[in-house]
Design a protein around this nucleic acid. Structure first.
Lengths: 129, 129
DNA sequence: CTAGAAGTTCAACAATGGTTGAAGTCAAGC
DNA sequence: GCTTGACTTCAACCATTGTTGAACTTCTAG
């Protein structure tokens, strides 16, 4: 029933690095920290699969949002090995939510800053009338 | 003409730490990295002055905005030793500008994320019609 | 004057996010 | 079958932002 299986293309570290724009050393780093997963050839070389290209790109996006590697591992852990369109969208929503949260936080700081004296009560004028 | 000089109060590391909510070790760290300046007693102990309390608090605010120690050193370097109200306001504006910039950046990421396929082109559906 | 609190320096450690280099192995084309 | 490029692991190193502890000194109150 599985017509023309297409032999799921597998990518070497270098392939994934080129495809995702992430350095090979970073790819390995992400793997040892559980953000990416690979299978191994009989010769112990990593082989990644297509969705990992997307995963790798998303790691970078998530980092721009300010998420730590640990946090990214957490949200990527919820992504199935072979994600559906919906899975990807859910992930995007998760990250977008985080981004919005960080924006809120920054806005709060901004308010503290611009609300005048809250930044720091100024030293009293020494010429007390 | 300088009536009642009021002997400019000077603060120890501990005083500054308590007044600003920054740990003594952090105060020393900031001093060695040029964010804070002190004079020394004949016995080599640091003595800070009032405006340093404000400086220390501002360092924390700037960090919440996402500025690095090096960046904060840069903007604090422009602040006079004994800042006027205007100087503080200028500083606040500088930091607020940075905060707005970071917010813009985050919004851009957010757009990339929410604009669907830009996050990462999804793998083509295997049931090509 | 002296005890104790608080200060000093310096080095080491920690977590985060990787990069770099050494030494060795695998895979692919000719 | 051999060469060459790409892969492997591991340890060391980098920058950043501090904290902690040891060993020693200073300050202040009684």
């Amino acid at each position: 029933m599985t017509g023309s299986v297409t032999a799921q293309p597998s990518l070497t570290v270098g392939d994934l690095a080129r495809a995702s724009g992430v350095a090979p050393s970073a790819v390995r780093f992400y793997e040892t920290h559980g953000l990416l997963t690979s299978e191994r050839t009989p010769g112990n070389q990593r082989r990644f699969r297509e969705p990992d290209v997307c995963r790798a790109k998303i790691i970078r996006v998530a980092q721009r949002v300010g998420l730590s590697v640990a946090e990214i591992r957490g949200i990527l852990a919820e992504l199935p090995t072979d994600p559906s369109l919906h899975d990807w969208q859910h992930l995007a929503t998760r990250i977008a939510t985080e981004a919005n949260y960080r924006i809120q936080q920054l806005r709060r700081v901004l308010e503290d800053i611009t609300s005048g004296q809250k930044l720091c009560e100024l030293p009293p004028d020494d010429r007390t009338p």
